[in-house]
C-alpha cells in the first residue's frame, strides 16, 4: 500500500525533544551456568509479576540467547530491579534503551 502524500502546508517538523532522563533503561539478565532454570523462572515471577508463560519465555531467552531484557523502565526503577536480581544471585546489568 502506497502512502498518501501529505498536502498540508502547516505541518511542522517534530521538535519535541524528550529529556534524556525519560529514556528507559533496560534491565538485562545474563546466562549463568549455575542458576537452575526453574529458580530463574521463580525469581522472574516474584520480582516482575510475570505469569508462568512469560517468565518461562524470558528464562528461555536467557538460556538460548545468552541474555534477555526483562524490563525497560526509568533509571531508579532499573537500579532497584538489578539490585534485587543480584540479591537472588542472578547476573544482571542495566543499559540505556532506545528512545
Amino acid at each position: 500500500m502506497a502512502e498518501r502524500p501529505d498536502t498540508r502546508t502547516d505541518v511542522q517538523p517534530e521538535t519535541t525533544v524528550r529529556p534524556s532522563t525519560l529514556r528507559p533503561w533496560n534491565v538485562v539478565v545474563w546466562d549463568d551456568p549455575v542458576n537452575l532454570m526453574s529458580y530463574v523462572v521463580y525469581v522472574f515471577q516474584k520480582l516482575f509479576g510475570f505469569n508462568e508463560t512469560v517468565a518461562n519465555e524470558k528464562m528461555m531467552e536467557v538460556h538460548n540467547d545468552g541474555k534477555s531484557i526483562v524490563a525497560s523502565v526509568e533509571r531508579e526503577r532499573a537500579e532497584f530491579y538489578v539490585t534485587r536480581l543480584h540479591a537472588y544471585g542472578l547476573q544482571a546489568t542495566m543499559e540505556r534503551g532506545e528512545e
Binding site: 551456568p33 549455575v34 542458576n35 529458580y39 521463580y42 540479591a87 537472588y88 544471585g89
Partner: peptide
Amino acid sequence: LRFMNDVRLVIATDLGIREN
C-alpha cells in the same frame, strides 16, 4: 532459596564452573 543459591554460586565460582 536465596541462601542455598548463594552457597551454590560460591561453590561453582570456586570450582571455576563456566559451562552448564
